[in-house]
Design a binder for these strands. Sequence first.
DNA 1: GGACATTTGTACGTATGTATC
DNA 2: CGATACATACGTACAAATGTC
Lengths: 136, 136
Amino acid sequence: MIDPHSDRPAYRQLADILRDRIATGDLPPGAALPSIKALERQYGVGRETIRRTLAALRTEGLVVTERGYGSRVVDEQPRVYVKVPRGGRVRSRMPTETERAELGIDPGAVVPVLVVMLGGRVRGVYAADRTELTFA
Amino acid sequence: MIDPHSDRPAYRQLADILRDRIATGDLPPGAALPSIKALERQYGVGRETIRRTLAALRTEGLVVTERGYGSRVVDEQPRVYVKVPRGGRVRSRMPTETERAELGIDPGAVVPVLVVMLGGRVRGVYAADRTELTFA
DNA sequence: GGACATTTGTACGTATGTATC
DNA sequence: CGATACATACGTACAAATGTC
């Protein structure tokens, strides 16, 4: 499974494995991942390695983690369509803590925001996992 | 400085402090942050706490970390303007490992991508820290 | 509501590897 | 080459959230 002598760090090797299990549907959207302790036993690595693995998958937006419960594969959310007005400009970046709270972005999720601007002023900030912009 | 008995975890308290130092210009864009060891001494916390602090600031896109060198405040990059065609749709998400490599996104940086679609097909994927979308 | 097991979060220590200067 | 700095990875302990009985 995991080769401690590989160039590739153990936590990345495990991330590759889980990413593959997600991609193939072995772990479908919404499915619970094994607990940290279970992963430790299954793959013969320490807790720090598991924690890094899950952190990497969170950063890729593939899983979310809830304290006292566990991690699960992210479930595609229904999209809200937002019209960008003519002359509008769009950027994307990571949200501030305030924006996370306002938009209800799960603390255990890594989700960017879409920023719509018009005339140099910000016209809207949207959680990217639930939003699709349209250009009429 | 940091109160170990506060409700707020030490690593978040330190993140607040550094975030403030960045916002006020005490640590301007491009400035080097103190090393992990220096931060340990300055704030009287352990390495794990520093690690988490820096991870949080990276996730917010505020700093980038380079191995063997250190962390620094991100520098705003010149924007490339990309025109979205009429009828185009835009999403944003975190990049895959492949996309990170293709777009040259620093491994120590957390940067989303802008995905431009037209007619259900992906027309372009852009690193969000260097791109602004426009609609003529 | 309480008691309990499970699970993740936080935070320390230690050691070794590797990249940069 | 050495010094510095971050990365990886193990261990340990306690705190806090969750779900179940």
